[in-house]
Amino acid sequence: MVFLGGQVLPGNVGRAILGPFADQRAVDALNHSLGVDRPLLVQYGSWIWNFLHGDMGTSYVFRAPVAPFVVDALGNSMKLALVAFVLVVPIGILGGVIAALNFNRPLDRIISLGGLSVTVLPEFVTGIILILIFGVWLRWLPIAAAWPKGAGFFTQLYYLILPSLPLFLVLFGYIARMARSGMIEALDSDYTRTAVLKGLPWRTVIWRHVLRNALLPTITVIATQTGYLIGGLVVIETLFRYQGIGSLIFTAARGKDFPMLEAGILTIGIVYAVATLVADFLYSVLNPRIRLGAEQ
C-alpha cells in the first residue's frame, strides 16, 4: 500500500501543475479577452516555454519584467517558511511524543486539545491576537515584518518570529497529532512489547524501536502541509506587510496584474511539486519497506 502511494504521488504532482493551471489560464484568458486570438493550448505552450527560459512576462502595473519581483518575493517567503518550519517540526514532534507517552493523562489532554484548537483558527485571527500580545501590549516584537535595509541575520530573524508564529500554531496541531497517533500505534505494537520483554531499558526501546516507526507518517504530513503553508503565507504576509510570494499574488490579484499573478501561481505550483517530490524521496529513504518494494 505504501509503495502504491509512492507511485501515485509523483503522477499527481504533474497534474497538480498542469491541470489546474491550464484552467486558471483559461480563466485569465477570459479576462484578457482581447489579444488572445491564438488557440489556448498554443498560448499556454508558449507561455510555459518562455517561463522555462526565465521570461515570466512583463508586469502591467510596474511596466517591468516580472521575474525579479517573483524571485525576490520567493526568497523572502522561503525565509519566513523556513523559520516556521525550523520551529515547528521539532517542537510539534516533541509535543506529540510527550502527549503519547502521557496517553490519556492531563498533559496529553492539554497538548491534544490545545493543538487542535490553535490548528482550526484562521491564521489572521491568531496573528492579530499574537500581535496584540507581543507587539502592542508587551512590545517585545515588531508588528510588521519590515526590517531596516541591510539588516543582519539575527535582526531579520527577530522580525520574522512574530509572523512565523501563526503558521507555527496551525502546523503544530497537525504535526503533534500525527506524531501522537504514530507513537501510540507503535507503543501498542508487538515489536515494542518484545523489546520491553527482552529486558531492554525503556529509553532504548523508545529511541530505537518506537520513534523510528512512529515518525514516518509524520514526515508525510509535514510534506503535505506545504500546500497549506502557501495559502497561509498569502494571509500572513498581508497581515504583516511582508514582501513575499503570498503578498505578491495578493497584490497582483487586486491590481489585476495578470502576468505577475500567473508567474506567482506557477512558481507556487513548482515549489509545491518539488516539496512533494522531496517528501516522497525522503519517505522512501527512511522506510526500508519501500526501498525493497521499488526493487522488486
Binding site: 503522477g11 499527481n12 491541470g19 486558471q24 479576462n31 498569502v234 490579484a253 489585476k256 499573478l261 501561481i265
Partner: peptide
C-alpha cells in the same frame, strides 16, 4: 479522482482569489 486530487492540491485561498478576481 485524479482531477479531484489535483484540485485539492491547490490551497482554497488561492482558488478563491483567482475565481473572485475573474
Amino acid at each position: 479522482s485524479r482531477v479531484l486530487e489535483a484540485f485539492m492540491a491547490i490551497p482554497v485561498v488561492i482558488i478563491a482569489l483567482l475565481a473572485i478576481v475573474a
